[in-house]
Nucleic acid binder design. Sequence first.
DNA 1: CCAAAAGTGTTACCAATACACCCATGT
DNA 2: ACATGGGTGTATTGGTAACACTTTTGG
Lengths: 259, 259
Amino acid sequence: MTVVTPTSPVGQACDHEVLAVVLQIRSGVLSALLWWRAFAPDAGRWALPGGGLRPDESLRDSIRRQLAEKVDVRELTHLEQLDSRGEPDRVPGRRVVATGYLGLVPAGADPGLPGDTAWHSSDRLPRMAFDHEDLVRAGIQRLRSKLSYTNLGFALAQPGFTMSELAGYYRSALGHEVDATNLQRILLRRGQIEPTGDTVRPGRGGGRPAAVYRFRTRVLEVTDEFAVLHPPRRSPEHRIPPPVPSLSTERVPDAGPGH
Amino acid sequence: MTVVTPTSPVGQACDHEVLAVVLQIRSGVLSALLWWRAFAPDAGRWALPGGGLRPDESLRDSIRRQLAEKVDVRELTHLEQLDSRGEPDRVPGRRVVATGYLGLVPAGADPGLPGDTAWHSSDRLPRMAFDHEDLVRAGIQRLRSKLSYTNLGFALAQPGFTMSELAGYYRSALGHEVDATNLQRILLRRGQIEPTGDTVRPGRGGGRPAAVYRFRTRVLEVTDEFAVLHPPRRSPEHRIPPPVPSLSTERVPDAGPGH
DNA sequence: CCAAAAGTGTTACCAATACACCCATGT
DNA sequence: ACATGGGTGTATTGGTAACACTTTTGG
């Protein structure tokens, strides 16, 4: 049965916790914000920020509240739900269902952190508590996927950036080479970014001054609907005719079950 | 930091429910399995199958158990998590966090249903309880997306099928025209399907006998990684060199927080 | 022999990659 | 001048949509 161990935070109605995988590109390394557990269970391991859901808050409100203890929430440029884990033994000694979130902080920001909290390179994760490492990997995977078909890059970059900076963020997040030239054209074509008109002075050694760009919106949008099984281009009204009900042997009642 | 107040109710641990959006193509119509609520709250509206999470089962086990009451679970060809909803007022009178699942049943199957349960056309949904309609739409959206870049078609089709049947399933699920000819080549190229060698006798009116195909695996696989921001083709080892730590001003400790 | 349905071959199109080349600046 | 980094132009590639055409059956 469910044993209540004194790890549960404040007066909870139910054992539901909310966890966040907070990612940021720090000096060219995709990093995750982790928190060091001083107490059992899993003392000495690193855990995701988060905690119990309060009776009067939504999941999203909850994770924002709990993140506020770790990092300045105003720095969070994106927050979306990952998935929920409910294995009975995922946390020893007590039954907790966890809902994971992915949070993103733009490059360059450097929020102050509590002493037990630190950024960890995503490809050299420390020993982590419970099933948290798995959630981190899910978060990274989600980020990588969405960079490809949405404008999620806005959440990794500061408001104004040069194309080589942006390509660097994509490189770090995706883990492979990204050509700044082609990235520029892809994002321009899709209407994700636009030049601000400003330029940036070249560093020592010279070089042409780089144009400054910004994302047109800093809210998630899908800009590349899946490349295959598109609706046909030719006849825009390729609507599927509603099938003849008389031929149907279906049982699709619209009212109550009067059978 | 963490306050210790073991107020969480023991035993019937938490108000967590699991819901399933079960979809099937029935006579060319993408349909959802719904259940008629006889009692308050929201009596007379249609709801998703599901129910409370038991203390000793995982989320996935729970939804399988609860679906077994509505539909022969052996018919379920696919089951994946959608998302969780935790707004405090999503169900009047009590606080319940819900985790939604997407379940798929292959065309042709016609499991017996309890009297209060029926299939409903997905584009003419009845008045639904709580936030369930929103979950249905999320499920449909998920299905449509994954048809494009995974082999999820296996879950909509019976084990053996002709290309025109399969194109029909895709048409119904996606809501737009799908060319059987091109679908065949796409799925063959991706290695999703293969001919069984059998053919099917043409109906009255003749026609060339159709070849029977099957999906090579009936487990979800991603067959079309996102079309853009691929790793470069040329040099397979375009690995990003690990950044020099000495130049880094980072604080990415590998051990406990000794700061 | 004709109609119907399935399958094949071919073309056109579009978007992304690769890469050579041009531009603007610091030393 | 020339090295350095940014930006533009362009050829190539690859995969899908579109569609005409061939194949195989029933009447």
